[in-house]
Design a protein around this nucleic acid. Structure first.
Lengths: 173, 173
DNA sequence: CCTGAAACGGACTGAAGAGTCCGCTTACTG
DNA sequence: CAGTAAGCGGACTCTTCAGTCCGTTTCAGG
């Protein structure tokens, strides 16, 4: 009953991939039809797996957050907390700048998915880097996120790496 | 021929006011019907003055930019370039945080209206403040805008004044 | 194979919103 | 105060898009 037929599983995969691309490009205004076309399925197929557009968006975001959680896990596993922190921030920035529309989707969905757990992991990464003396102690984990996000959002086209570098340098102890 | 009848002028005013409110609240997705309802006119009336929704949005932004230009003018007229700069930034921030949706409208319209002139005035305000020794010299006018915008966009609900204060303190010489 | 359940996809519906049109109303002019 | 052009507003069209339905196809187990 809970097992999906082989073709269904394949299509589900395709739909999620297509939805990620389309939402990443167009944000929450992307249309189901376009996603279905890109996935090579009829749009009825999309709606059977995801009863509403928001359900689909939610699934895409869950996957996206999962990727960041995986990065966070790697950072926490590293034995150089300082470099792990800077690497983590760079990778997360890279991921999010590659998918600008997803940020709007997260806002649209009210930040529901695994944001809290991710937040906890991120806090720990920052704390560890501070304990290791790699990051100045007078910033709080939440401040790091906001500083980085602000730099990314406000940076002109193609300049975000430069802006991020400035922020990261400013964070070193 | 070019003169508007009295009632027409009154309605035009109402439409612009309503459009400003609605676009400020909902961004570019706001509907003409809602604007017309708030203005107390039929939506045909809106379309006679502004053939397309984008034309209306454009007019709203022009007004918005004009307000900022006026603020810039006052700042340049002041004989204390330092305080004038900080006041100007605070006022502009206040205006934009009161109308969050307009920023998206500006992006939607491709920044077309009087942005270049405003940019020029803002550059001069920064330069004057630097010459007066009130602002550190190692920032460029464009950087000021991006720093401030980043802080405003990324600040949590209701916290933007605090974040702005931090940025402004950081800019003092 | 053969059969039934699962999956498919496209035709269909309904809502919403942009933009058009035209018969009615109202402000100016003489 | 009468004539008229400007202005009004809502009914209408056209498109887009989310979500539904059902006849047809395909998978999987015997």
């Amino acid at each position: 009953m809970t097992e999906l037929r082989a073709d269904a599983r394949r299509n589900l995969e395709r739909v999620l991939d297509a939805a990620t691309d389309v939402f990443a490009a167009s944000g929450p205004d992307a249309s189901i039809d376009e996603i279905a076309r890109l996935a090579g399925v009829g749009h009825g197929t999309v709606f059977r797996r995801f009863p509403t557009k928001d359900d689909l968006m939610f699934a895409v975001i869950e996957r996206h957050v999962a990727q960041m959680q995986e990065m966070a896990g790697e950072a926490l596993a590293s034995d150089d907390p300082g470099e792990a922190f800077f690497d983590f921030v760079r990778k997360v920035a890279e991921l999010n700048m590659r998918t600008p529309g997803l940020h709007k989707c997260v806002v649209h969905c009210g930040e529901k998915p695994g944001a809290a757990e991710l937040q906890g992991l991120a806090d720990e990464i920052v704390s560890r880097a501070q304990s290791a003396g790699a990051v100045r102690r007078d910033v709080r984990p939440a401040d790091v996120q906001l500083l980085v996000r602000g730099a990314l959002i406000s940076s002109p086209e193609g300049q975000w790496r430069r802006y991020l570098a400035v922020i990261l340098d400013g964070l070193r102890a």
